[in-house]
């Protein structure tokens, strides 16, 4: 039986008067990669951000409905959002390393959590960089500034930084849109490895990427989930005409 990581029920989200998410219902399974696809402005990023309450940081956002993570409603007022964001890490479209050394980039989060022991930090940095398939590239220059890395390396550094927080879920919003094909492939390979330990959600505009990396795919349109199924079903025999039009590039 597959475990359900997020059970989303009747989720609505408003930016002021504008309803960006309309009555979403979806079950995200643990240790699987779920791709969110759909045309620009359909609410993919907004939905992703509800899963770690990043939308709380935006003025005038109102959310209702339920998102149960391992059974607990994370939309409740009682939820510690700092803790939630530790469990649900995020990687953004543009690699955003801090302007500090590679080592400090990774150690930053754990230090904020109060980890001071040098040995523990060393180990964490090494294991996170290894998990992000970056260790061999950078082990000899951990004290160099992260800004000097290539874009693809920077993005893997951001993934390593997320991993160092020991998350359960990693959210990725178009993580390879700024990368070349080789760096993209490395990230995709990495996602495949990471899903053994983490639940991953990825927003992507590349249909090929969605079909290569994900197990399940949700098609969003105008704030609604039009179709959610295994990636194989979505890309071989979608039920909804709109889904087929979108994935085959005949949309609109």
């Amino acid at each position: 039986m597959e475990e359900i990581k997020f059970d989303v029920k009747n989720l609505n989200l408003f930016y002021g008067d504008f309803q960006a998410l309309k009555n979403l219902n979806i079950e995200i399974k643990a240790n699987r990669v779920t791709a969110l696809i759909g045309p620009s402005g359909c609410g993919k990023s907004t939905f992703l951000r509800t899963l770690n309450r990043m939308n709380d940081l935006v003025d005038g956002v109102k959310t209702n409905g339920e998102i149960r993570m391992d059974g607990k409603n994370i939309l409740s007022d009682k939820v510690n959002t700092i803790e939630l964001r530790t469990k649900v890490g995020m990687v953004f479209q543009k690699p955003n390393p801090f302007p500090m050394s590679i080592y400090d980039n990774i150690a930053y989060g754990p230090r904020c959590q109060g980890i001071k022991d040098k040995k523990v930090l060393d180990e964490l940095v090494e294991s996170s960089l290894k998990a992000a398939a970056l260790w061999d590239d950078v082990k000899d220059r951990l004290n160099k500034n992260a800004m000097g890395m290539s874009g693809g390396q920077q993005q893997r550094l951001c993934i390593a930084r997320a991993i160092a927080m020991k998350p359960e879920v990693i959210l990725m919003d178009e993580p390879t849109s700024a990368l070349d094909p080789i760096a993209t492939q490395k990230i995709e390979e990495l996602i495949d490895v990471l899903k053994k330990e983490y639940t991953i959600l990825i927003v992507t505009h590349s249909m090929q990427q969605a079909s290569r990396v994900s197990d399940d795919t949700a098609f969003f349109l105008l704030g609604e989930i039009v179709e959610f199924d295994t990636t194989l079903n979505i890309f071989s025999n979608p039920k909804n005409k709109k889904t087929e039009e979108y994935i085959t590039g005949r949309f609109g």
Partner: peptide
């Protein structure tokens, strides 16, 4: 052309 769905 990498056809999918009905195209494939």
């Amino acid at each position: 052309l990498r056809p999918i769905a009905t195209d494939l």
